[in-house]
């Protein structure tokens, strides 16, 4: 899949935005992920980015594989990231994550059969006073119970 014209323009612009083209790798990877139908960054996308940005593929690939917010495999329409770090674990974050997997019949990091859900356990999201909480795509949902989380996701 080749990038859309808008994405190509975006990448070119980001390459001008910072002191070096290399700094544009992180924002451009986000863009590539957003454009991907499976919400991931594929090797083809990395190769296309490398050409557009005139950077070695390996530099982009290193960045892709270092940061956890870039998906290296397909992710459901709703990427549900449940914090299981210390304060959330103390307040039922882990149980909530387990519950969601059961409820949507999906293993962690996999896509539910209807393509809607991927459940991940993630590290601290900086919302410890509202534990347990989850991030669904870009948004935080805080002060949850397991049941509320399920309802919220079903209603999305």
């Amino acid at each position: 899949m080749a990038f859309s014209q808008e994405t190509i323009e975006f990448i070119k612009k980001e390459c001008q935005r910072y002191e070096t083209r290399r700094s544009a790798i992180l924002p451009c990877l986000y863009r590539a992920q957003k454009e991907d139908p499976n919400n991931q960054v594929t090797p083809e996308a990395v190769a296309e980015m490398a050409t557009l940005m005139e950077l070695p593929e390996v530099q982009i690939n290193e960045v892709l594989h270092f940061y956890t917010m870039y998906n290296k495999k397909p992710v459901g329409k709703l990427h549900v990231q449940v914090c299981t770090n210390i304060s959330c674990s103390m307040n039922g974050g882990r149980e909530m994550a387990e519950h969601l997997c059961k409820e949507f019949n999906v293993n962690y990091e996999e896509v539910s059969s209807d393509g809607r859900y991927t459940i991940s356990r993630v590290e601290c999201l900086g919302s410890c006073d509202t534990a347990p909480m989850m991030q669904v795509n870009d948004k935080y949902h805080e002060n949850l119970t397991k049941e509320e989380a399920v309802k919220l996701l079903k209603d999305m």
Binding site: N85, I86, S87, E123, C124, G126, S127, C128, D129
Partner: peptide
């Protein structure tokens, strides 16, 4: 880059 578990004041 507030990431230290337990920290949320910068947000």
């Amino acid at each position: 880059d507030e990431g230290e578990p337990g920290t949320f004041k910068d947000r």
